[in-house]
Design a protein around this nucleic acid. Sequence first.
DNA 1: CCCCTTGTATAAGTCTGCTTTTTCGGCCTA
DNA 2: TAGGCCGAAAAAGCAGACTTATACAAGGGG
Lengths: 258, 258
Amino acid sequence: MIRRVNPPSPGIAPVQSAGPEAGLHGRVLDHLGTAICGGDLTAGAVLNIDDLVDRYAVSRSVIREVLRVLASMGFIETRRRVGVMIRPANDWNVFDPQVIRWRLASTGRIAQIRSITELRTAVEPHAALLAAQRVDHDEASELVGLAAKMWAAGKAGDEERFLSLDIEFHQRVLRASGNEMFVKLQSLVAEVLIGRHHYHLMPHYPHEQALQLHADVAQSIQRRDGESARRAMVQIMEHAFEEMSSIWEQARTEPNPA
Amino acid sequence: MIRRVNPPSPGIAPVQSAGPEAGLHGRVLDHLGTAICGGDLTAGAVLNIDDLVDRYAVSRSVIREVLRVLASMGFIETRRRVGVMIRPANDWNVFDPQVIRWRLASTGRIAQIRSITELRTAVEPHAALLAAQRVDHDEASELVGLAAKMWAAGKAGDEERFLSLDIEFHQRVLRASGNEMFVKLQSLVAEVLIGRHHYHLMPHYPHEQALQLHADVAQSIQRRDGESARRAMVQIMEHAFEEMSSIWEQARTEPNPA
DNA sequence: CCCCTTGTATAAGTCTGCTTTTTCGGCCTA
DNA sequence: TAGGCCGAAAAAGCAGACTTATACAAGGGG
């Protein structure tokens, strides 16, 4: 009844319910999700299955599977004798990675980036504190090494490399915190960074001070000085936040360049 | 094509893809979700649709809809010519409210409570800080009023009432922070509190000091002194964390009372 | 002996027509 | 006017056939 398979799938990318990858299901889901996040379908609007079958020219099974998924995300609610009702935005599962992608693709992009950045600002300092209490020696050493590489890349002006090291650094701190939810959060942040890149909202000139602060975090964690690691991370977040604020201002003036 | 309906659904509870509420879909989903979270189906195990059809004695459509939802939660991955593979826990959408409920119902309960409590510890102080910058006068006044009621309930030893006021207080602070994700987080915390109650892991004797701290938070927010609000909230979280730690220790010795 | 191609069986994906259940909304009576 | 009855509308669920991708093995060439 339940077989077992060798390594769950060697080198392939996880993908995790990505966009219009392949298959009717994915395409329709992506289209509807985008429409709802984009405000083309607003709360209170009512659809029905047969219309959707016609509109997308797919079978009922496809539509019904899509609707179940949308319902589990809090996007819709189906009622017999009525149809499929779109639910208001505050019922959505805003932590679902797929929802985040859709929102980054919508005009609510800036609000989404802002929300996650604030969340990150709240979480990462605490993660640094926990990491200092919980890392093992190897992890700590690697963190220090990473900070050093970031320094080098920053000094060399290699933006591409700096960014990827930056992402990895924060990922490792969160992983070292020993909290699964913090780790998952980083995957959300990664969505934002990818989105930010994709929609050309990238600034990122690593400041001298930011480089030093990353090194401080790594060293404090290695010394198991949680409070010091926390403070350094707070400063990193403050810098990052200022950086993003300037982008928001800029985006406010020239509304929708995508 | 798209009709419109009066208030999206007046007074009814949102429910949001709850448990075995009603319908085959819900029951099968709940059963499989519980099995995966509970470790009865571990990563790498492979199912197939026809077996599931037999096992649950429902039609293919029901099973397929369930599988699509589980896939969107990161629980499974389907591959042609192979079947349905269970994915490892670190691929799960641990922020999905439904996933949290299942995990609270599993033996991994304590880990789940711990994760969310840490997350809360990280987020709420920052939320208090933002709230101080963003509340309007009415909200601030209500917060102060709430803190006063908490004081009264605490002094009167009315635990039930204190707990519900406590939940409402934190909810309002998070709402006042103006960050949708923080608000959603509170709904996760609420799941935990409900779960904690349901599995009889409740302590909660409001300390004198905790009462004072809540009042401090409210007043600091009203005075728009963000840093002060943050510090008071940090202390609240430290108290809450200690309280929970003692439960974890206790749960470690007497493993599974549910 | 190994690599690459090719064929085939398998299980998911999709489609379609049908029955069942729920419930909205109108209508009828008291 | 209120309350209950009834019909129709739409989702929920079922059954079975067909389509498509693909893991795996067998065979052929280097």
